[in-house]
Design a protein around this nucleic acid. Structure first.
Length: 567
RNA sequence: UGGGGUGUAGCCAAGCGGAAAGGCAGCGGACUUUGGAUCCGCUAUUCGGAGGUUCGAAUCCUCCCACCCCAGCCA
């Protein structure tokens, strides 16, 4: 019986293709310990697509008792900045991963990379080429036509070595010469048509400053860096598949530790975009507030929105890993979020669109402190006391003068429960004499229903949240929705720009919202469930004087579904 | 006749010759002091298509189709 059960559990546990390879390598003894790396280029902020890679690389290392390095791929000084390396570090740490002292930079290897380049030259496997960028392009050929050999291809190793050293010494103009690998100009794989491995570029590097005027290319620096660090499995995205033969070529020619590159499909999420360039354009065009705008899929944006690292990690575990291009439904991310937040967020009451209610039969000056549980999912979260008074506010949408079928909130003559408090019945509607707008409700309460139930077992289906008028804390609340209206914003019609499907309602700012007094103590990034609304997070700019909350995600709302069907 | 990949439900994704896991979404229902949570059901006679091999194919072979990536001195 127990065996059957564990066998069944075993059966459901399936490995993705990368873990399958890793287990094989461990089982066959190819590697005794696995070693991975997360290799961001410090030229922008991390987003949830990077989180997939981070969780994979660090996760796999953890699972198999190996190590994962944090390595910055900083081979292009014109694009990289210290600010990004700091932000990346913070994000990875926030996600919950630790690289200990193994923080590396490709730029740490510049000297060694240079030595290896000289080795290639000496072996006759690399040469200095004097072709201009335009000429290189034209010599490269096209997708269907093979390329032509550079006229400088057959220089002697001695001449190449001398030229290369002079490149390093700064004797030549930027862009005037390159060091190229000598491979095969007729290869069907363009990456193998004598790729450039060093270029002359006078730019101040964020770490090495001005000590170099030649910089290695990614295709060369990456495999060598991996090899030097003893990376066993170098995991990257699909677009590098064509580069693998070149990756292998360098390690083979240099005869150094053979890291293995394995490619997987990058993450795409519905209703958003993921490329650094496109996200940057949203920031630059002022469509969003910055990289940490709560609508951005950037790690810092998700954090400000109220996402927990646990939810993001769970999501990364659940999306799977494969080689096919996919577009993951953002509903899965939201599901993971709700699942975590449901367990961990203290419940609290907040009225977003207030409607005044007077309990006419409740004593004028009485303040009754009622017990309220903090989290029904977690008894250890304890309880708090909330004040109940004659005048309270409820949600405007929780009252309807002429309710449709199945509406079990407040309406004239109906009885509802105020969460943690009393049953009330609406007896009167007060209107603005000019506009006819409902300005206030008059209700009576059942003193026997204190706490929210009665001994007679009477069924009261509707439960409303509320806040005491005298104690309410005013706040600004920001409601966020998907950034784009189209599932795949990049699935464009002819001549269309991806910005055309921006969701005009991705942000709604509510002011004059009223919170229960407990919330005055909230610190930036604190997370709560606002009862019946959703999960909210104190904004980074929130202060006790001016509380601001961001809606992380709504609660699932079956009433909204019913309403939709009815209309 | 350029090269490299990928095609299993609305979205992800297992499966590796013995006869379609799981998750999300959706739809029913139970329960409920959040129309939340939880629970319990239902949802691919079929695996891009057509042939073939086999007692038996999503899995092997052949051909075809569709989609993605590559012509930076970016990563």
């Amino acid at each position: 019986m127990a065996d059957e059960k564990s066998a069944a559990a075993e059966k459901t546990k399936t490995l993705d293709f990368i873990r399958t390879i890793i287990e094989e390598d461990l089982n066959t003894g190819k590697h005794r310990k696995i070693h991975t790396r997360f290799p961001p280029e410090p030229n922008g902020y991390l987003h949830i697509g990077h989180a997939k890679s981070i969780c994979l690389n660090f996760g796999v290392a953890q699972e198999y008792g190996g190590l994962c390095n944090l390595r910055y791929d900083d081979t292009n000084p014109t694009k990289e900045e210290q600010e990004y390396v700091d932000a990346i570090k913070d994000n990875v740490r926030w996600l919950g991963f630790d690289w200990k002292d193994r923080e590396y930079f490709a730029s740490d290897y510049y000297e060694r990379l240079n030595d290896f380049a000289e080795q290639l030259i000496q072996k006759g496997k690399a040469y200095v080429c004097d072709l201009s960028p335009e000429e290189i392009r034209s010599y490269r050929g096209t997708l269907t036509e093979s390329g032509r050999n550079s006229p400088y291809r057959d220089r002697s190793p001695e001449e190449n070595l001398d030229l290369f050293r002079r490149m390093r010494a700064g004797e030549y103009q930027d862009g005037s010469r390159t060091l190229r690998a000598k491979i095969d100009m007729a290869s069907g794989n363009l990456n193998m048509r004598d790729p450039v491995i060093y270029r002359i570029m006078r730019a101040t590097h964020h770490r090495t400053e001005d000590t170099w005027c030649i910089y290695p290319m990614y295709d060369y620096a990456h495999p060598v860096s991996d090899s030097l660090e003893g990376i066993t499995h170098s995991l990257c995205t699909l677009e590098f598949e064509d580069h693998r033969p070149l990756y292998d070529w360098f390690l083979e020619e240099l005869d150094i530790f053979r890291s293995r590159q394995i490619e997987f499909a990058r993450l795409n999420l519905s209703y958003t975009v993921m490329s650094k360039r496109k996200l940057l354009s949203l920031v630059e065009k002022g469509v969003v507030d910055g990289w940490d705008d709560p609508r951005m899929p950037a790690i810092s944006g998700l954090r400000r929105r109220g996402y927990s690292p646990e939810a993001i990690r769970d999501f990364c575990d659940r999306i799977g890993l494969a080689k096919r291009e996919s577009l993951v439904d953002i509903a899965l991310l939201e599901h993971c979020l709700r699942e975590d937040l449901n367990q961990t967020s203290p419940r609290v009451m907040a009225v977003l669109r207030p409607l005044r209610v007077k309990i006419t039969d409740f004593p004028e000056d009485k303040i009754e402190w009622l017990e309220a549980e903090n989290n029904p999912e977690d008894p250890s979260a304890g309880s708090r006391r909330i004040p109940f008074t004659r005048e309270i506010f409820i949600e405007r949408t929780d009252f309807m003068e002429d309710p449709p079928k199945k509406y079990f909130r407040l309406s004239p003559g109906s009885e509802v429960r105020l969460k943690h408090a009393y049953y009330i019945t609406c007896t009167n509607i007060v209107r603005d004499t000019e506009t006819g707008e409902i300005t206030e409700l008059r209700c009576t309460h059942d003193p026997e229903s204190r706490g929210g139930w009665t001994k007679d077992g009477r069924r009261v289906k509707g439960t409303l949240h509320w806040v005491s008028a005298a104690h309410a804390v005013p706040a600004e609340i920001r409601l966020y929705d998907h950034l784009f209206t189209r599932e795949d914003p990049l699935d464009l019609e002819e001549g269309e720009d991806f910005l055309e499907s921006l969701n005009p309602d991705s942000l709604e700012v509510l002011t004059g919202c009223l919170l229960e007094p407990e919330l005055e103590k909230a610190h930036p990034f604190d997370r709560f469930q606002f009862l019946r609304h959703g999960y909210f997070c104190a904004d980074k700019d929130s202060t006790p004087d001016k509380p601001i909350f961001n809606r992380t995600v709504t609660l699932r709302d079956t009433w909204a579904k019913i309403e939709k069907k009815q209309s």
